[in-house]
Nucleic acid binder design. Structure first.
Lengths: 348, 348
DNA sequence: GCGCCGAGCTAATACGTATTAGCATTGATG
DNA sequence: CATCAATGCTAATACGTATTAGCTCGGCGC
């Protein structure tokens, strides 16, 4: 750690091989256009010196001079710590990593992005976006203004999860929540449920809107289909409200809320799904211990990660035509919390 | 994606503020040495323009010109896919991420490193090591030759897990396997075990050697302390051998082997720990489904990740004095697979 | 002998920043 | 008034690569 021995450069290689730096660069990049010609002997000589010295081009200089880097940035909107949402995001990262490897790209995690007002910011004084050729955006809620800016700057990116337009179409790989929820509603209707309730988290994220849209679209033939907000720590009250309302099945946006609801029901001497059916709408976003196998669906997180790399590389090299927006199907989970409504119960 | 609008540079800022590019750089870097002075009004003017344009310095150019990048490389030796070892490495990454965030560093995952002869290589034609200021090395076995080369090149790095010298001391943050195993041996001896067996995986990785060393050091007062290799798929044979040998407790290097051993014992009508005690030596490196709470220890993986960032930053800025080698204590796990040897059994 | 052409290479420059030597100006001092 | 120091800034250069215009040299046609 005294004085770092100046690393080998193309100039050094050039000197050793008795050629110019330009020639070394040309050989390295296998330039065999009509424009540029290198004699086979010269090429071999240069390659031999490169092999001997173990030289590898400085990626920084390379990036500065040319255009691409084969580096994919990953920006995670939720502050990583101490939030438990890491577990939720992990599968996305696995998928991203798998395809990054396949495409020969390195991954740059923007862990240094500062948190302002409880959320991370892409754009800040020292953002390093341009180190990467493009960027994958992860997060439940993504700031619309930042999407606008990305679009304006023409910076290649892709969001994981559907996003509304932001000064132009937003490239994304999302999960088809609307269809998944609609399918579950249809199952419930088929099993005889007539009074449905949707329990939301009170956010306006696209992922929530899509779920609600699916619910509304499919619940049209129900006798009653309402929506209410889940209030933290008020599971008991919620259960009372639901029963008083004659609800037989509740669609719960947030997994943790579903767990709390089930506990509350059991505490009140009710059975699930005997007295009340509970359907969850996606994997837990925070770790919740439970033994219950909830009926619901699984978000294809790994596959979303993989495809986001695919889409991004298309956007980067410009080979992608038109807006790159993909919605992947969710896998329904049978579980055992969706039953048949008890006909003996007063249905009003 | 037509023609990317040339991004704003310091020259642009300079022109707008009516100063030179050098001044912009000086203002940006808050250079207020005795050597360099900028009038407050000038500084403000420049800062205002920067704020207006939303300019952020190009990290690539910055890195080329100066020395550091605030980027930490992460190299994972095991090929990521389709191996299940991701789960084993995840906690390390969590720790690394946590401290990278704390230190204001981004993380560069070298997912593009090619696999040669079943293992990944750091040094290859297109390695991007120099994008990062330094690098964290993860992996059960790390190639000694590559460590040599890192040392020779004076490239800052730190290994997660103890490593033997490689042309100089290797900076590492490891787990103190020797002590952990020794403690477990002592517990077994205290409970009356006299004939111990160590079941190894047949690798020569430092992590294995440390465990064996701990075993040998602590088992000196045992009546018999042997070592044997676990052969995949031969759990039944192994159990027979152990019993024939009069072994009452077996220390198993590999978690999956321990699981197989317990099954085999049960299949033979034996009880664990009644007839045979089983001690595991660290967390599973591949996912193994089991309900058994094995006695053993836990590797402080997150903490190792955190401290590896600490050590690396020390190595990078040269503030670290002497070889940076840390061994962290493992947490013993009580479990219920280590019992008291049955005195009724013929001890020979 | 001259012009031309193609092959094989190099010189020069750009990329965007950090750094350093030094210039111009001002005010103070003898 | 000459000298000097302090202040505020700029010109020039380095970092290591990619790219392109153009140079040299030999051979060939006429």
């Amino acid at each position: 750690m005294t004085t770092p021995p100046r690393r080998v450069t193309q100039r050094d290689i050039a000197r050793m091989a008795g050629v110019s730096q330009a020639t070394v660069s040309l050989v390295l990049n296998n330039r065999t256009d009509a424009e540029v010609r290198i004699a086979p002997e010269t090429r071999d000589r240069v390659l031999r010196v490169i092999a001997e010295t173990g030289y590898a081009a400085d990626p920084v200089a390379r990036r500065l001079a040319s255009r691409f880097n084969r580096i994919i940035g990953v920006f995670t909107y939720e502050p990583a710590f101490p939030s438990g949402s890491r577990d939720f995001f992990h599968p996305f990262l696995l998928g991203i990593e798998e395809y990054a490897e396949r495409f020969g790209c390195d991954l740059l995690l923007f862990t240094s992005a500062p948190v302002v007002d409880g959320r991370r910011r892409i754009f800040h004084q020292d953002n390093r976006l341009r180190l990467a050729d493009g960027c994958i955006l992860l997060g439940r809620e993504i700031d619309g203004a930042e999407l606008h800016r990305l679009n304006r700057d023409g910076y290649p990116y892709v969001a994981v999860g559907r996003r509304d337009d932001a000064g132009g179409p937003v490239p994304y790989v999302g999960a088809d929540y609307a269809s998944a929820v609609a399918q579950l509603v249809e199952v419930a209707l088929r099993r005889g449920h007539r009074r449905l309730m949707y329990l939301n988290m009170g956010t306006n994220a696209e992922s929530s809107e899509d779920r609600r849209r699916g619910f509304r679209a499919a619940a049209t033939t129900a006798e009653a289909a309402g929506e209410m907000s889940a209030l933290a720590g008020e599971a008991d009250t919620t259960v009372d409200t639901l029963l008083a309302d004659g609800t037989t099945v509740v669609f719960v946006e947030d997994f943790a809320t579903a767990v709390a609801l089930e506990s509350a029901a059991r505490r009140r001497g009710l059975t699930v799904p005997g007295d009340l059916s509970i359907v969850t709408l996606g994997d837990p976003t925070v770790p919740v211990p439970t033994d219950i196998a909830f009926t619901g669906f699984r978000i294809p997180r790994e596959e979303m990660g993989r495809q986001s790399v695919e889409v991004l590389t298309g956007v980067i090299d410009g080979s992608a035509a038109g807006p790159q927006q993909r919605l992947l199907a969710c896998e329904l989970v049978e579980g055992n919390t969706l039953g048949t409504p008890d006909p003996a119960v007063d249905r009003r």
